[in-house]
Design a protein around this nucleic acid. Structure first.
Lengths: 231, 231
DNA sequence: TACAAAACAGAACGTACAACTTGTTTATTT
DNA sequence: AAATAAACAAGTTGTACGTTCTGTTTTGTA
């Protein structure tokens, strides 16, 4: 019989080691805009770290708050629901990724950047932030609320990425292939897959060899850019 | 204060719609071996379906049991812990995958199978069972118990796969590249990545185009197999 | 037929989690 | 300086989950 709910003990539920949030000593008042931005940034950074290291379901709000040295209350104030934090992560990562792409390409002699594209993509996608976004995407499959909030963010991101490559190609005097979108999607997928495998192998060298194969392949697919010289 | 555990209601916890397990009417006794195998097979099949559709954390033991039309008791008898079921899934999938590879290659004229390898790999890896295994691997990152149980299963699987390709190559009179392992890893990664993307796009055609690019690439990397003729 | 063991059924338990709630401190505005 | 609002802190609650437990039915064996 159990129509009456049993008295369930939760006596050990509050076992967090009483992390003391970093206490300020300075007397100068910090503007609210700064405080908010700082709290949010720390939460997003901590979330990326947890997601990339432990995966989505192990990334609980409590763990993120502790890692970020932010109280649960502050966290709830900035991101009322867990999904809000995850959306913030995706937004921040995409922004940072775009910046990183731009800087990487600018740092390379004009005609050679295409050959280095696989390495550039690897550097961006295999980062913890890349893994974090992948985890969030996977999790959104079983979380309608998260999926809905992500929909608006995700819209148009991949389109821009390929468009950007096309412009770069043209400014180098090269024509894109008719199936250029398929090639681009394939490269992203390949590097995502390699990054995934990297989560389970400490063998970095083997994966770097696969990225090198990608560089050879891109020279086959776009003969105009020439083969990479052996150093 | 809360040293005394609060009386927490769980009155709505057993809200499952009272799924009646399929009741037998036949009088002939079924051997235990058959009953066990049937229960296990149904649980594994249901787990694969849930994993591929909803992801790991949404694949709860209750959901799997209901989907499999198996009682929770029967489930616990066969697979005491959730991780045991997941290990069974991985074992079953790998076995089925190997069988599928063998059959696919045998169904193709000897010198052409290499050109079709991307399609063959796509057919195997992008199946629900392939997605399910990926989900389990990802989940094992934050579940030491699952990771430990998987370690013994996973050992030596990828090695066998590449070894198998090498043998096939040699029996066709072709020599593998010195970086053949990197190529193989790259192809698996690419198809995994494409399969992942397929979870979020209904655009099957676009992904098929990417697989077609893979076929072109493999002909570049192994010139001996010739280019695929346009039909 | 008797008895043991496997397979099954489902309720009960403890816990971890996200969300909610209440109270306190710090910054901004008037 | 007073009032208001933002930021923060932490305790509380409901619930979903994996596991464990107790009891029942079916199959195998002596």
């Amino acid at each position: 019989m159990s129509t009456k709910p049993a008295s369930v003990g939760r006596s050990t539920a509050r076992a967090l080691p009483s992390q003391t949030p970093a206490r300020r000593t300075s007397k100068k008042p910090r503007p609210q805009a700064v405080r908010s931005a700082d709290t949010r940034r720390r939460l997003v950074d901590a979330a990326v770290a947890c997601l990339s290291r432990y995966g989505y379901s192990a990334t609980t709000v409590s763990v993120v708050a502790r890692q970020a040295k932010v109280s649960r209350g502050a966290m709830t104030h900035q991101y009322p629901a867990k999904s809000d934090l995850m959306v913030a992560v995706v937004e921040a990562v995409y922004e940072a990724d775009g910046e990183q792409y731009r800087r990487s390409v600018e740092a390379i002699p004009s005609r050679e950047w295409m050959r280095e594209l696989p390495t550039i993509m690897w550097d961006v996608i295999s980062r913890p932030s890349g893994i974090a976004v992948m985890e969030i995407m996977l999790a959104s499959r079983s979380d309608r609320e998260l999926a809905d909030k992500l929909r608006s963010v995700q819209r148009g991101i991949d389109v821009h990425a390929h468009q950007w490559v096309i412009e770069r190609l043209e400014s180098a005097g090269l024509k894109d292939r008719p199936d250029g979108d398929a090639v681009h999607r394939l490269f992203v997928a390949a590097i995502r897959g390699l990054a995934l495998e990297g989560l389970f192998r400490r063998d970095k060298v083997g994966i770097e060899k696969s990225v090198a194969v990608l560089k050879e392949i891109i020279c086959h697919l776009y003969p105009g850019i020439g083969f990479p010289e052996k150093p």
